[in-house]
Design a protein around this nucleic acid. Structure first.
Lengths: 176, 176
DNA sequence: CCAGTAATGTTATAATATATCATAACCGGA
DNA sequence: TCCGGTTATGATATATTATAACATTACTGG
């Protein structure tokens, strides 16, 4: 999944070990560049988010951490998420209150998210056309833009073709 | 603010009594059309949301109701909000966890929201260009769209020109 | 090694939202 | 009008999401 390529929903059983590795290497590099520490905790949380390859809830991260390491508390997770957001290594999906790995943390970009209602897989777009149209219309109303939240909910190709495919929705629910 | 017109941020001290009246009349009509009841509670909550003319938090509504009427509880508010959402009389701003009145409840539409970071005024767009561009790009990835969340955060014209103008942000904060 | 900063630990609590069962209000037909 | 079904609200409890505040530890540069 590259910036210029066509973003796609993953096929089922997509093996994303290489995605994770790539993400970790980029994260490492970004932390060095930003002169900040990629600690064990930060690395582990980012790995967990990438391992899921789906949006992850803060308290699910907390539970996982607790299974590995006693005494993680909510602030442990939220501070780490805050760090990862600040350095653009992850994004927050507002409509799900969940977090996903950023596909291109090394490039400044404005994201849009495609979210499958059923299997909850998320695809990150960096579509200049969407961004430009939104910017233009917002400026018409006089808005000086700070951030765009664009989250498109629907049914992904895998889930359109089957009822059993696309693992069940589990904990995550959404408001539409 | 009409569908075909140019949506605008309101000037300060905009007197929106007529907006509220119009909204209430439309709501009444829609409830009759949908064969459902526009009860005192539902009417009052919708009025409160419109009175603010800014996004309103659920627990602020609860507090207001309690000042008027003992014994309102969270479910009282959330059930009422659910009703108003279902009948498209209000929208939820995901990035603020807050609710705003819908400007054109009598027309099926796909909304985009312009949100001022400082005064928290919200403008609802129904921009076919934004909707179409998003739909096209999402379909390219194979997504069968169910809902679009488009929330553009920035600084509105009033707040760009002054520090004191645009009432302070109060309770509402956002994540960017 | 020391002092300053950054990161994490720890406790408490705030803010947002839902599940469940009980009661009341409304509505249509006998 | 009363009855029974449905819709709406009351009431209690609890789940979920997020932050404040202060203590301790770990790292970093001199």
């Amino acid at each position: 999944m590259t910036r210029s390529g066509s973003p796609r929903f993953h096929s089922l059983k997509h093996d994303h070990d290489s995605c994770i590795d790539t993400a970790m290497e980029k994260a490492q590099a970004i932390c060095i560049e930003n002169n900040t520490r990629f600690t064990h905790l930060r690395k582990r949380v980012l790995e967990l988010i990438w391992s899921s390859h789906k949006p992850v809830l803060a308290y699910d991260l907390l539970e996982t951490l607790r299974n590995e390491k006693v005494n993680a508390q909510p602030p442990t997770v939220y501070r780490t998420l805050e760090f990862l957001l600040k350095h653009r290594l992850i994004h927050k999906i507002q409509s799900l209150r969940a977090y996903v790995g950023c596909d291109f943390p090394d490039q400044r970009h404005i994201s849009q998210f495609l979210i499958c209602n059923q299997c909850h897989q998320v695809v990150e777009l960096d579509d200049p056309l969407i961004e430009q149209v939104i910017s233009r219309q917002a400026r018409k109303a006089g808005l000086e833009i700070v951030h765009q939240t664009v989250e498109i909910l629907g049914l992904c190709p895998n889930c359109q073709t089957s009822w059993s495919q696309g693992e069940p929705a589990d904990a995550i629910r959404n408001t539409h």
